[in-house]
């Protein structure tokens, strides 16, 4: 049962991602990505990490993707901002590269005997989770919080409002 669910969710995620990367309108791409993220969150839950699944939805799909949407809206881009080039010219080399890489990866994975092991859902109780997070990785938590502070300050600084002068090229 779980296996089937897994495969269904996997296909859903792959399809959504595929559609995401081929859209010309960034808003459409973001929506498809949200879809993919939902599928991934469900896979996480399946693998026994409800907390991670919840955070995937709340933070990733909820905050980060919304941020993307805000920025896209703010920039007032024309719908077809980027000229999609003739299909094969744009995607050709990338496809070749990706297939080559995929081939290499699959061969590597298939050749590794340890990878054939089965995965079972592992649920960590909040207590265990909390222990690990705040006791074992306490330092990492602190560092990450610093980093969030830097990010906030940085984003604020980079995006600050600069008075326009002249025609529109402020600093060249």
């Amino acid at each position: 049962m779980d296996s089937i669910l897994f495969y269904i969710l996997a296909i859903a995620a792959l399809a959504a991602t595929l559609l995401c990367i081929t859209r010309s309108n960034p808003v459409h791409a973001v929506i498809y990505l949200v879809n993919a993220l939902f599928s991934l969150a469900l896979i996480f839950y399946l693998l026994g990490a409800p907390l991670v699944a919840a955070w995937e939805v709340i933070i990733y799909a909820g905050a980060i993707m919304v941020l993307f949407l805000f920025i896209i809206m703010m920039l007032e881009l024309a719908p077809a901002e980027e000229r999609p080039g003739p299909g094969w010219r744009r995607w050709g080399p990338v496809l070749v590269l990706s297939l080559v890489l995929l081939g290499c990866t699959i061969l590597l994975i298939a050749g590794d005997p340890g990878a054939a092991q089965g995965v079972t859902s592992y649920y960590a109780s909040p207590r265990v989770f909390g222990y690990a997070l705040f006791k074992k990785y306490a330092l990492a938590v602190e560092v990450v919080s610093f980093q969030l502070l830097f990010a906030a300050v940085g984003a604020f600084y980079v995006g600050r409002h600069r008075p326009k002068r002249g025609t529109g090229k402020e600093e060249q």
């Binding site: 590269l97 890489l101 290499c104 990866t105 061969l107 590597l108 050749g111």
Partner: peptide, 15 residues
């Protein structure tokens, strides 16, 4: 990306 491909290819060859 092509560098990554080269590295992976190398490992593959080795394997």
């Amino acid at each position: 990306a092509w560098g990554l491909a080269a590295m992976l290819g190398w490992f593959l060859l080795w394997t």
